[in-house]
Simulated scan of single mutants.
Amino acid sequence: MVKKRDYSEQLCPLQQAMSRVISNWVEGPDDWATPVPNLGFFRREELTEPCFCLIEPSVVLVVQGTKQILAGNEVFPYDTSNFLITSLDLPAKSQVLDASPHNPCLGLVLKLDIRILAELIAQSGLLHQREQASGMSIGLGAMTPAIMEPLKRLLDLMDEPEAIDVLSPIIQREIHYRLLLSDQGSLLRHIASVDSQGHRIAKAVDWLKGNFALPLRVQELAARVQMSTPTFHHHFRQLTAMSPLQYQKWLRLNEAKRLMINEHMDASSAAFNVGYESPSQFSREYSRLFGMPPKRDIQEMRRRADGIG
């Protein structure tokens, strides 16, 4: 058995420096889009219950604290020793496990570009590595200096805004390459390699995200990405822990929730807007996912936001 190498001595000063950068830019509990394309920061000051989210293809790391993602029946806890990576838009739940006002959970999210991954695979010869990625389109990787150092350089650009347009694409390309060489590289290669089953599922997911309000005919979607219906079902569920219909339902219900909160739509209007023909069916499925009927759920959310109860 190969002994896992301990990089903590090299990683600690990098993490401390990155914590200072994130603390300087994000003062309260929030998600913050940075001037660096594809890079976001987050700060949490208390433990949380699992919250629904759609994770885009990205690498996520905490430089202070602990979080976890619940996807399907799997749990993925991550702290300063590892990173979370996703290769598809994945419905999940996010939870903060270690945070306080004096010692907040701090971290970053870097969205990944599948086109860059595909170019690097072809250019570097990684295409010839035939190992199969197993399981879902999400994994935990061991953090190494080779990955952390370019991430630290990317954060340093926050203090050098005039260099962002020139240096950010170069550094991000290096990060993509380092991730392809990491212990989670096969997960990325499975999605980014053109004509792989994972690449076809990624195209189907993109179609669902843009057309979730339309009726879904799984046979037609499978044909669209040049897969047989049984093969499509198998790989879709393997990578997302959902069937295509469940994935569409998740997208519809979460968009309806957004419309009710941000656009102040009533439940029936939101239901029709996302493709439901029956408000009663919408209410049943909403309650099943979120634990209570739409109207009561939104009222509870607004009450909590106002600090009542």
Rank of each mutant, 00 (worst) to 15 (best):
T240F: 01
Q246P: 02
P244R: 04
I261C: 05
Q197L: 15
A202V: 04
Y177C: 08
G210N: 12
A204R: 02
G275V: 13
I261F: 05
I171V: 14
R258G: 03
A267H: 03
R284I: 09
E277H: 14
S196N: 10
A271W: 01
L188I: 11
R284N: 12
T231Y: 00
P215D: 12
L221Q: 05
D206L: 07
K209F: 01
F232S: 11
L216V: 09
L188V: 09
H190Q: 15
E162P: 00
L188K: 05
S269F: 00
R200N: 02
H264A: 13
P279H: 05
Q184E: 14
Y247R: 11
P169H: 03
P230H: 03
P244W: 04
R200A: 13
Y177E: 13
K257G: 09
H199M: 02
S278Q: 11
H234C: 00
L259V: 01
I164Q: 06
D159E: 14
D206Y: 01
V205D: 02
I191E: 06
Q246W: 00
K209R: 15
S186W: 03
P161T: 07
A267T: 08
Q184V: 07
D165F: 01
A163Q: 14
P215G: 09
Q246K: 12
T240N: 06
A222Y: 00
E160H: 14
I170S: 10
L179H: 06
H190G: 10
A204G: 11
R252M: 15
L245T: 15
D266Y: 03
R189Q: 14
P279K: 08
P169R: 05
A256W: 11
V194N: 06
F212I: 03
L181Y: 02
L157P: 06
S228I: 00
K209S: 10
S278E: 10
I261K: 11
T231D: 09
K203D: 08
E220I: 06
F272M: 13
D206E: 13
P244K: 06
E277G: 15
E160V: 11
A223I: 04
H233E: 04
Q238C: 05
